[in-house]
Design a protein around this nucleic acid. Structure first.
Length: 294
DNA sequence: GGTAGACCTGGACGC
DNA sequence: GCGTCCAGGTCTACC
């Protein structure tokens, strides 16, 4: 079964996939040789399927490749909604492009359809993955996410090696020590467990933030209230939510800005923020898609 | 409000 | 091969 979904132009599937490292994290499977992005996902009916994403006229396609399945209308709509969210198909960057046209380092943004960033199906998944990017290397993040998916994800019916990202209700019932050791999360285990339990108990409705009309500062406050989410992680999650007022300042950002404007001398967060202060509600996008000298 | 130390792991480095 | 040091954000305690 295949769905073709429209996207607000300009749109480039390659651009969404290459915008950041998420395609390398399970349950996404990115094959750069064949330029194929797949993902294992649980449908609302409970069926676990493998999705294959591709280009289509005016947007993109999603195909259920394993197991071949026909969907009821309600499931078809749920899948369309999920893919629309993951690829930001309805996102509008026209105001950002208008400002980007005035800056040579961002003049390519509109022509290359830059702006969208691949998201997971749930904010829960993106929140956990973001926590797992902190205070570690990228290879460490890949390893931790893989351990979570392998240990607690739901398998494809005919391939137990391919699994979904574990649902919060699943992780809420794992003890912190097991998450720490088998999940390889280390000191982050209690953070992920606390988040899973808050969602599972109904104390926190994280997914509601995806469609919330709260102002950015209030959204940021809600994100910072999650243990393990600090300034960098909150800015990263705000970008995923389509709010670009805060630059996610990590050690890489400090190096980039130091090299670009400070002759390589060590700088702090304030200098990064100052570099993009004129970009208003597009600060994070300007930083993310800036054509750096080195 | 600002700062120091702890948290955990992998990788780099020196021996 | 082994031990040591460091990088990577956030939390907590303390001033």
């Amino acid at each position: 079964m295949r769905l073709d979904l429209p996207a607000r132009p300009p749109f480039s599937l390659d651009q969404v996939i290459n915008a950041h490292g998420w395609p390398q994290l399970q349950p996404f499977h990115w094959n750069p040789d064949h330029r194929e992005l797949r993902r294992v996902e649980r449908l609302p009916s409970g069926t676990v399927v493998e999705l294959l994403f591709g280009t289509a006229d005016g947007g993109m396609s999603v195909e259920i490749v394993n197991p071949p399945a026909a969907l009821a209308d309600t499931e078809r709509q749920a899948l369309a909604d999920a893919v629309t969210w993951m690829f930001g198909l309805d996102q509008d960057f026209s105001a950002f492009y208008a400002q980007a046209r005035t800056e040579p380092r961002l003049a390519h943004a509109e022509a290359c359809a830059k702006g969208r960033m691949l998201r997971s199906a749930t904010l829960w998944e993106d929140c956990v993955k973001t926590i797992l990017t902190t205070n570690t290397t990228w290879s460490g993040t890949i390893r931790m996410v893989e351990a979570l998916v392998t240990q607690w994800g739901e398998p494809l019916p005919d391939d137990s090696g391919r699994r979904t990202f574990p649902a919060p209700e699943r992780l809420a019932r794992v003890d912190a020590d097991t998450l720490c050791t088998a999940g390889k999360l280390g000191y982050r285990a209690p953070y992920v467990l606390e988040l899973a339990q808050a969602i599972d108990s109904g104390k926190l409705n994280l997914e509601a933030l995806k469609t919330s009309d709260l102002p950015t500062l209030e959204l940021r406050k809600r994100l910072l209230a999650i243990k393990g989410v600090g300034g960098y992680a909150a800015a990263n999650l705000l970008m995923i939510l389509g709010h670009y007022d805060f630059v996610p300042v990590d050690s890489w950002a400090l190096k980039l800005v130091a090299n670009e404007w400070h002759g390589g001398r060590p700088i702090g967060q304030a200098e990064v923020e100052a570099a993009f202060k004129d970009w208003g509600r597009w600060k994070a996008l300007a930083y993310w898609f800036w054509e750096w000298t080195r």
